[in-house]
Design a protein around this nucleic acid. Structure first.
Lengths: 137, 137
DNA sequence: CTGCGTGCAAATGGTTTGCACTACG
DNA sequence: CGTAGTGCAAACCATTTGCACGCAG
């Protein structure tokens, strides 16, 4: 998604278009693979030296609220952000702490079918996410 | 697991038996359902008024390292502890933030079989955990 | 113009750390 | 007795908040 498209997208979502918002959203798109707030900040500070950390967090929150991005929590507690919106699971690399998206509609179907037959008692399922840990080869 | 058994268990794991350790491990067993460090501290402080927060965290770390308990991270980033060691998944209640264990060897078998056939390219799976979110009825 | 968005700096909160002291084995 | 464990308080670090100013609509 390029600059113009981002601006159009923000407008369409009824968000005020500010240079900071555009930059932050652009950063998340370019920094593929779940950047932390820190990653985003240092990426942006190249072109926006006076953007403030507080602002970044505020913008991230509003992007999450308006469903432009998703928040992913990690093993060590810090948050990561993902511009990839469709339902997906995550691969966690034990060694490098890298996180990658994993989409697999066949697997989703399998699991959904399983829970269609076998309900969990006293619990109504809303969503199922897999955390797959291992190593990239 | 009662007091005596806990002491025996710690010994068997080559851990020094101190009143603090016993109390903390006992607290986690009794406070079924994934207490936070804070939950544990306030539970223990009834009988051990001068136990220190730092100590609790240190003991929790050593119990985790020695495989007496497991660490579970939550949505909001704080850690929870679980004396339940066998492989299991988690049910997250959206409304109450309650976490419950979910064991289902049939499901595990299904998923393992699936990934035996369909490998993820460039990734070697070590473990798979499901986060099932929804509501308790 | 009006109010949302921003920058700054201080506050927060859960967790960690350093160090002198204590007590388990 | 020697060393691992403890208590305390200060440090950490990612994130949040409050407030005055600035800019988008």
């Amino acid at each position: 998604m390029n600059h113009k498209e981002i601006i159009a997208y923000l407008k369409q979502k009824n968000l005020r278009v500010t240079p900071q918002r555009v930059a932050i959203y652009e950063a998340i798109c370019k920094l593929n693979n779940h950047p932390t707030a820190e990653n985003i900040i240092s990426f942006i500070q190249v072109n926006h030296p006076n953007i403030s950390i507080g602002t970044v967090y505020k913008v991230l929150d509003s992007l999450v609220e308006n469903n432009l991005i998703q928040k992913v929590k990690t093993e060590n507690g810090s948050m990561r952000y993902d511009s990839h919106l469709s339902k997906h699971h995550h691969l966690y690399c034990i060694e490098t702490e890298k996180i990658e998206d994993y989409e697999d509609s066949e697997l989703d179907k399998l699991i959904n079918n399983y829970f269609k037959k076998k309900k969990i008692k006293n619990f109504q399922i809303k969503d199922i996410k897999l955390q797959i840990t291992g190593n990239f080869k």
